[in-house]
Design a protein around this nucleic acid. Structure first.
Length: 299
DNA sequence: ATGTCCCAGTCTCTGGGA
């Protein structure tokens, strides 16, 4: 080998309002120093996207949002080109033609080329309740995502990251029985996620971490984070050529802690190429502390 | 515990969404 490629760090994070979280995101950028950061639920209109703040941190930014809800972005230390929003759909016309107008009309995808990669930041619909029109629209959106993917060249250095709102297996939820019948875990949602993997995408976190109990989202209520009552619904899915380059993957639960209020999601991080510095994502000892807390509260 | 947080609009409170 003619010298190892320089290490590169990619992260995805649903920040639950980029405006409310700007200081926390800036702190985390300093902490983790990602080369590429995929953001979801910015809840910003494009005109209010904090491009200047990111420029001061050393990042180029592409943002797609209309404010209020949803909103996605890509921040990269390298320039961004060929920016595409919502899979290149004209926002409403072709979506309505496909019979799944609302979710496709929302700002849920932005893609760009940067640092030799094609990166996609996505925010899948929540689905609310199984069997509702919102759930049906979520499945339609995931189907559209799969069809978009299946039309891509197989040898592309693709990174598909974001909040998929799907926990792929029972190992990705705190209690399969408690979750049964809800969204994020239903067979059709899991089949939609499996279809992305069947095409060839690799779940980068699982490639490095087979253990259960590792989540990316915890409800704000009822102390769910401190009891580790969560789900792994944020993912970095990477093409085979990128998967071979991954040397580390982590979920940074430190980012879910503290005040002012954090996002209800934690960032997912993957490092490519040469091993960089180790990443203490805050899980060391956490399982034992959570178990002890459970034993104490059960008494 | 129906438990919190964020946003927009009705705007120092309420309702919707997650």
């Amino acid at each position: 080998m003619l010298g190892a490629a320089k290490a590169m760090r990619i992260a995805t994070w649903n920040v639950n309002s980029l405006k409310a979280r700007l200081d926390k995101v800036a702190w985390w950028v300093e902490r983790a120093s990602p080369d590429v950061l995929l953001l979801q639920e910015t809840k910003c209109p494009d005109a209010d996207a904090p491009g200047e703040a990111f420029a001061r941190l050393g990042y180029h930014m592409a943002h797609h949002g209309s404010g209020g809800r949803n909103g996605v972005a890509i921040a990269s230390r390298s320039p961004l080109s060929d920016v595409e929003t919502n899979f290149g759909e004209p926002l409403r016309a072709r979506a309505a033609e496909a019979g799944d107008d609302e979710p496709l009309g929302e700002a849920r995808v932005v893609a760009a080329s940067t640092a030799g990669l094609r990166v996609v930041s996505l925010y899948a619909p929540n689905g609310r309740v199984v069997g509702t029109p919102f759930y049906v629209a979520k499945l339609a959106w995931l189907d559209r995502l799969a069809r978009w993917l299946e039309a891509r060249p197989k040898d592309e250095a693709l990174v598909l990251g974001g909040d998929f709102n799907v926990a792929p297996t029972d190992a990705d939820v705190w209690d399969p029985r408690a979750c049964h019948g809800g969204t994020h875990v239903s067979d059709p949602e899991r089949a939609a996620f499996a279809r992305l993997r069947a095409w060839g995408l690799v779940d980068a976190y699982r490639r490095h971490h087979p253990e259960a109990g590792r989540y990316t989202w915890w409800d704000y209520r009822a102390g769910d984070f401190h009891r580790n009552v969560g789900m792994r619904i944020d993912h970095l899915l990477v093409a085979p050529s990128v998967a071979r380059r991954t040397v580390l993957a982590e979920i940074d639960r430190e980012a879910r802690k503290g005040r002012p209020t954090p996002s209800d999601h934690a960032p997912v991080v993957v490092d490519l190429d040469a091993p960089g510095r180790p990443f203490d994502a805050g899980w060391a000892g956490a399982d034992e502390r959570i178990a002890a807390r459970r034993r104490a509260s059960a008494k």
